[in-house]
C-alpha cells in the first residue's frame, strides 16, 4: 500500500506516493528523478548516498523516505547556486578531488555539513569528518586539500 507524502528536495516540494519501506535514496533517485546521489552499498558503508536533512548529513540508503517528510532535503544537485558552483565544488575540481566522480556527490554533501558545523577545521578534523565517505580513486589527498582550502578562505 502506497502512502502519499510530500518531500522537499533542494527547495522544491515533490508530491510522491511511496511504499512505507522505501528508503530516501530510492525515493529521490527513482521516484523524484534526481540521480546525483549514488548507491555504492545500500548499507551505510560508503557514503555515496549522503544527503542533508535540515543540514544534518544522513546515509539516504538507510533512512526511510517517509521519515524525511517535513525536513528540507539537500542533495548534490542543490549545492550550486544556479550556474555558479559552490566554492567546495570548484576546489574539488581544481585540487584533484575528483576522479571517477562516483563518491563525489556524497563527499561534497559531507564536506558541506562538516564546514557548516566547523568553519575552520584542522586537517585531522577534515579527515575524521569525511571518514564515512569512501573514495577508491583519489587517496583523499585532493579532497582534503579542497575542503581545507575552502575553510581557509571563508
Amino acid at each position: 500500500m502506497k502512502v502519499a507524502a510530500t518531500l522537499s528536495v533542494n527547495g522544491f516540494a515533490y508530491p510522491v506516493e511511496l511504499d512505507p519501506g522505501t528508503n530516501l535514496l530510492a525515493a529521490v533517485r527513482d521516484v523524484i528523478g534526481l540521480t546525483g546521489s549514488k548507491e555504492g552499498c545500500d548499507d551505510s558503508e560508503c557514503g555515496a548516498c549522503m544527503m542533508l536533512l535540515d543540514g544534518q548529513p544522513v546515509n539516504a540508503c538507510s533512512y526511510l523516505a517517509l521519515q524525511a517528510e517535513g525536513s528540507e532535503i539537500t542533495t548534490v544537485e542543490g549545492l550550486a547556486d544556479g550556474d555558479t558552483l559552490a566554492p567546495l565544488q570548484v576546489a574539488f575540481l581544481e585540487l584533484g578531488g575528483v576522479q571517477c566522480g562516483f563518491c563525489t556527490p556524497g563527499m561534497l554533501v559531507s564536506a558541506t555539513a562538516l564546514l557548516a558545523d566547523n568553519p575552520s577545521p584542522t586537517e585531522d578534523d577534515v579527515r575524521i569528518g569525511l571518514s564515512g565517505n569512501l573514495c577508491r580513486c583519489t587517496g583523499y589527498d585532493g579532497i582534503v586539500k579542497a575542503v581545507l582550502s575552502v575553510a581557509g578562505s571563508s
Binding site: E39, V76, E77, A80, Q89, E94, L108
Partner: peptide, 22 residues
Amino acid sequence: RTFIRPDGKEKVTGTGRYTADL
C-alpha cells in the same frame, strides 16, 4: 602543470550520468 577535468562540472553537480542513472 594543472589541468582541470573537462568532465568535472557534471561530476560535481550530480548531473553526470552513470549507467545505473539511465
